[in-house]
């Protein structure tokens, strides 16, 4: 069992939804398990669909492990604008250092 941390999902309209998540889960799971709208994860987390696309803050981005090639390739298919801080949230595991992070949800996943 991991430890509990808080993740702040920022909706496209700027409003924030704070959820309690567990380290070891992916950011995608933190969203889906808490019914956060706007993160779809059609493929269930296999890095196959790019419907779990999110943006991180610059500061958080530097904490994250680099994207594997699969993720980079799949990310090109994301429906919303792809930015330097774009990631597929199914590929990002939550760690204790990530307590309190902000995760920006893009305006669309399809």
């Amino acid at each position: 069992m991991g430890s509990k941390i808080t993740v702040h999902f920022v909706r496209p309209d700027g409003s924030v939804e704070a959820v309690e998540a567990e380290t070891g889960e992916s950011v995608m799971q933190a969203a889906v398990f808490n019914d956060v709208e706007g993160i779809e994860a059609e493929c269930g987390g296999s890095c196959m669909c790019a419907t779990c696309h999110v943006y991180f803050d610059d500061a958080v981005s530097s904490l994250l492990p680099e994207a594997e090639e699969e993720e980079t390739v799949m990310l090109e298919d994301a429906a919303a604008e792809v930015r330097p801080t774009s990631r597929l949230s199914c590929q990002i595991k939550l760690t204790a250092e990530m307590d309190g992070i902000k995760v920006q949800i893009p305006d669309r996943q399809y």
Binding site: E40, E42, C43, M48, C49, T51, A79, Y110
Partner: peptide, 9 residues
């Protein structure tokens, strides 16, 4: 996967 995206859109 691609088809479901079109369908949902």
């Amino acid at each position: 996967v691609r088809y479901r995206r079109m369908l949902r859109a």
